[in-house]
Nucleic acid binder design. Structure first.
Length: 292
DNA sequence: GCGTCCAGGTCTACC
DNA sequence: GGTAGACCTGGACGC
């Protein structure tokens, strides 16, 4: 049996462009049913449980298991779903800029730009590490292994994303052999140990007053996080002045704007310079237009 | 079946 | 500050 909660949304919100904004919807503990546009997520904690999100006119329906919908848990679910879907983020400045270009007019019309994220920055940080220097298929393997082998089980048999403490409790060999993390193994372990011990608090990045340049430096102090990973994380905490260029994004740019010819990153940066603090979101939406 | 290449990069050593 | 080389893995591709 399930209980249904309703999360009211607003005109500048589009469930579909938010859910299918980037690959995160395919990484556990998310599960995406594109045919029916339903997104499942397994929340962690002492008693993990999964919820299913779907669209309604003017809102999002959240199916949660009976027994987890006491007032406190219901409030937590609504708060975290707002966070995941970035319901409270204001994109009006971004839309004003993109509307000036006819080819980008669709972005405001479809209320695009909300990049799906995890309930915690820690989870997004681990997943971002799992995207570095590998195929998307391997990223999915690593995140699935992390959830299956270290995540706490919900009553429906699905598992939540592991806590930092759970991740700190295994060896580097475990990351190599069981997670298939390869050379990233010591990076995962070191990150988990620092977060579990309280030495590093990635959640603080969400509300940091640091200038983006300084915050990026702090992110890059995490082993395994370089320019791409830091700029991707910056996007996930709501700062879009970095492009987060990777081989996929570069390739898409060459195809769309450079007659399939390789060019320097500085040319790509110059192309999106006019979008100022929104340039990272501008390139992402521009390159993923066909998805929508 | 086997070898090679490369993907949603980063680190270290060296200059 | 810039660059070369090493680093794991799995899938695609050519033979």
């Amino acid at each position: 049996m399930t209980t249904k909660l309703i999360l009211e949304t607003h005109d500048a919100f589009n469930f579909r462009t938010a859910v299918y904004s980037h690959g995160w919807c395919e990484l556990r503990p998310f599960e995406f049913d594109q045919e029916n546009w339903r997104l499942r997520y397994v929340f962690g904690g002492a008693n993990p449980f999964s919820v299913v999100l779907s669209e309604l006119p003017g809102g999002v329906e959240i199916e949660a298991p009976d027994g987890v919908t006491d007032a406190g848990t219901a409030a937590r679910i609504l708060r975290e779903v707002r966070h995941i879907l970035r319901l409270d983020e204001d994109f009006s400045g971004f839309y004003r800029l993109t509307k000036k270009q006819k080819r980008l007019e669709w972005i405001a019309r479809m209320s695009a730009g909300r990049l799906l994220r995890s309930p915690t920055v820690f989870e997004d940080l681990v997943k971002t590490l799992a995207t570095t220097n590998c195929s998307w298929a391997l990223t999915r393997i690593m995140t699935t292994n992390l959830v299956e082998k270290l995540g706490r089980e919900a009553p429906d048999g699905r598992r939540a994303f592991p806590t930092a403490a759970a991740m700190a409790g295994v060896s580097a060999d475990f990351y190599r052999d069981e997670i298939r993390a390869g050379y990233r193994a010591p990076y995962f372990l070191e990150l988990a140990e620092r977060v579990a011990s309280g030495q590093l608090d990635p959640e603080a990045w969400l509300v940091s007053d640091l200038p983006t340049k300084e915050l990026k430096k702090e992110m890059k102090a995490v082993k395994g996080v370089g320019d791409y990973a830091a700029e991707n994380l910056l996007k996930l905490v709501g700062r879009y002045d970095g492009l987060a260029l990777d081989s996929w994004l570069r390739g898409q740019f060459y195809k769309k704007h450079n007659r399939e010819t390789v060019c320097d990153d500085r040319e790509i940066a110059a192309f999106y310079e006019k979008f100022g603090p929104w340039r990272g979101l501008a390139i992402w939406c521009d390159m993923t237009e066909k998805w929508h």
